[in-house]
């Protein structure tokens, strides 16, 4: 499948640009308002396959339906107080979604209630 190959190439490119010593080389910011989410070198880069609800859901979707997309690259944050600014939603199915603390855009990632670890999707943030 060519799509998969493309995304793997993209992963390598991302790593080169943004990852150093397995961590985020640059500050992590909100794509929409620029609010600082993570300090540079504070989170581990990992690959993990996880479905996250789309940031903008189609208004014409069926009632109660949630549109997801699979995300493969995350920054792994073990301690929630590592975040500079972040919002946690109420719990849904043993996880809380992460949102921008200043403009509430999200989900930018998720928080696992069992492990108490957070995961920030690279594709939903900006590096600066």
């Amino acid at each position: 499948m060519s799509e998969v190959e493309n995304s793997e190439v993209a992963v390598e490119n991302d790593q080169k640009d943004y990852v150093e010593d397995g961590k985020n080389k640059l500050n992590v910011k909100c794509k929409f308002c620029g609010s600082k989410i993570l300090d540079k070198k504070s989170a581990k880069y990992i690959t993990l396959e996880k479905d996250l609800p789309l940031m903008q859901q189609d208004n014409n979707r069926k009632e109660g339906e949630i549109q997801n997309e699979q995300i493969k690259e995350f920054y792994h944050v073990e301690n929630m107080y590592t975040f500079e600014n972040i919002g946690f939603t109420h719990t849904v199915a043993n996880c809380k979604y992460l949102s921008c603390a200043d403009c509430d855009a999200g989900p930018v990632g998720f928080y696992d209630m069992d492990t108490k670890h957070s995961y920030v999707a690279l594709s939903r943030i900006e590096h600066a």
Partner: peptide, 15 residues
């Protein structure tokens, strides 16, 4: 930028 998804679930707390 507000998202219906986040506003439906609601925010529990912020850091």
């Amino acid at each position: 930028f507000t998202t219906t998804f986040i506003s439906t679930i609601g925010i529990d707390f912020k850091i």
